[in-house]
Design a protein around this nucleic acid. Structure first.
Lengths: 209, 209
DNA sequence: TATTGTTTGTAACTAATGTTACAGAGTGAG
DNA sequence: CTCACTCTGTAACATTAGTTACAAACAATA
């Protein structure tokens, strides 16, 4: 597991001395598919660095409605957790394991020192922020400018991309939640996508063609 | 003008030595109402620090459709410009002066050094990121969870907040653009708001009650 | 195999938003 | 004042998305 951590950090441009430190102060954490890692209202003491698997970051409103913001994959970290922690604020989103995943949990208390000392870490952190901004903007684009039909198709393609699999194992209900719509609407539009030979529908499974 | 800069920076917690530096290397810039400050596709060499006035940050799609992301007010800076510049990317949003405004333009080249040297600057930058994340999330909330009627009312209240004025001098067409809808729809819903005694409509002017 | 719960398909209807078209009111330049 | 232009109000209609209701297919397990 430490090998994976090392190679991902190296890939991210982190210098060897800091890789050492991160290895020493962090602890591993496994998360099974569907496991809830961060809940709204909690405060993060750890910066979660994804070793493998996929996490989803979801926004919730007061009535329990939801919308998917983006996925986190290997080598990435949750910039919004950082932002929250640095400001001492509560998280206002939830993070769930979309597949069995492994994280490296790094105590936030080291962040300021590292940002000061390591140029490579500054770069990594700012790059993370940038990537998340981009993802949020893309999410806003989808919600704002696309019809639900297009958004659904984009959702499936994004999911394919994140999980590196042409098969998506979700119920229509689950998809509807990520898009903040109803199951009936999703079923209707999926059927339409199937009729246009873009996907194939089975129970709890959608294959992208 | 330098007085204003100084007091805003002090308020933001920036230490005196850095305030000096910022005063020395920055230059003032005035922007008249409606002036375009950042266009999609450009690259920012300066960090724009708002001294007074209000700027709007707007996202555009390929067909020229738009949506307002948030306003920037005195003492704030455009975290997305920072993010873009640090990563050497092009801006993918536009920034417009909503009122006559004055900015302090600080060359980005100093940022890394300041982040390294000044704890107060790290705090300011990370706080800016946090605030922008929050604003983007709030925007996502509005688009996702609110009906257009509610979104429009919230838009008017936000505008009131940003400009510190109960009178909004915009045409329905302009409002429609910020919400990515059509003028007719905005007129319809404004009329509804007027019927519920929440606003008063005149030509090019909406008063919030 | 029988039973139960989950998932999907579909129809019929409602609500929200978008579009087109046109009239009339207000404004500024000449 | 007149003309040209912009802005607003409103009706009629189209499209998209949300809701309710129910049946059938499938899966798990007792």
């Amino acid at each position: 597991m430490k090998d994976l951590l090392q190679s991902l950090l190296k890939e991210a441009g982190i210098e060897p001395a800091l890789i050492e430190e991160i290895q020493e102060v962090g602890v591993p954490k496994k998360a099974a598919t569907g496991e809830l890692l961060i809940t709204p209202g909690s405060t993060s003491m750890y910066m979660p660095f994804v070793l493998n698997g996929v996490l989803s970051v979801v926004r919730q409103d007061d009535n329990g409605n939801e919308i998917l913001l983006y996925y986190l994959e290997g080598g990435e970290t949750c910039a919004m957790s950082l932002a929250c922690c640095i400001e001492g604020k509560k998280n206002d989103f939830k993070v769930t394991a979309e597949e069995d995943s492994v994280l490296w949990m790094v105590p936030m208390s080291h962040l300021d020192k590292w940002i000061q000392e390591y140029k490579s870490f500054r770069k990594y952190i700012f790059s993370s922020y940038q990537v998340r901004f981009d993802e949020l903007l893309e999410t806003i684009d989808s919600i704002t400018f696309l019809k639900l039909y297009e958004r659904l198709y984009k959702y499936l393609l994004d999911k394919k991309q994140a999980t590196r699999s042409y098969e998506i194992n979700m119920s229509h209900e689950q998809i509807a939640q990520h898009l903040n719509t109803s199951r009936v609407v999703v079923s209707r539009l999926l059927k339409q996508l199937e009729n246009e030979n873009k996907i194939e529908i089975e129970r709890n499974k959608i294959s992208i063609l």
